[in-house]
Design a protein around this nucleic acid. Sequence first.
DNA 1: TACCCGTGGCT
DNA 2: TAGCCAAGGGT
Length: 296
Amino acid sequence: MSGSPHSPAALHAPVLEWYAANARVLPWREPDAGAWAVMVSEFMLQQTPVNRVLPAYRAWLERWPKPIDLAAEPPGEAVRAWDRLGYPRRALRLHAAAQAIVERHSGEVPDDHEALLALPGVGTYTAAAIASFAFGQRHAVVDTNVRRVLARALTGVAQPTISPTAADQRLAMSALPADEPTAARWAVASMELGALICTARAPRCDDCPIRSQCAWVLAGSPPYDGPPRRGQTYEGTDRQVRGRLLAVLRAAAGAVPKKALDACWHDAAQRERALDGLVADGLVEPLSRARYRLPG
DNA sequence: TACCCGTGGCT
DNA sequence: TAGCCAAGGGT
């Protein structure tokens, strides 16, 4: 059952042993963290690196230790506390999710996968992550790290496909240990391997516990030969303008005169489009044509 | 499906 | 330096 290359089961023991010895100490992994802490961390970690999440995470849980504490606040306070983590719609969704938890689940983060998936801002990955990390359930937890580890170790290519696919989910399911607690440890361990060793740019294969079984290494570590990845341009985009507008509103105690927002960006047409977009998203509340604030 | 959505560190 | 990349979700 073990030992042959490309055999998922052969990966389990070395990866689990490696994790036991090398896992980072992170607050949401503490035994007493609780499901709400795991959920907050997962929202913040959607596209934002661990090191930048840590301070915001600590402040958030100190201020709102339970879902009902956040649900009682206006959504604008969540946006303000989100600080500069990026993608502030996540703050709005986390606030809405907290309200849904209070209304539908008596204030407790549900342990049911379908119930989690029905919460705002919770997609396939986040639902599986909360169910696995917080409740020890058996789910394929497929993020960009896991997709990369499986692409290399089992498929033998340098990088996974650009977008997540159903094939990724099937591959992750096939690699999942049958036993529930082992599956939960495998989920976090394989993700950590992707974050620390099997990294996107300069993988540390010399330190990898499964290098002797890795299909990509065994194939001679061939370079990526798929379609070119679309770079994310940022300078001059609406996203940059939105970020500037929201930064002004976050820094202000209350409402902000439109004149202060107008100073954020030179191009009036783009500025108005960005502001309208923020209002449409519920991130900004217009009090009049001349005054704006974070949503109350 | 492809695109939109922030921010900043790293190589 | 300028891209590249980061525990995705919604539409």
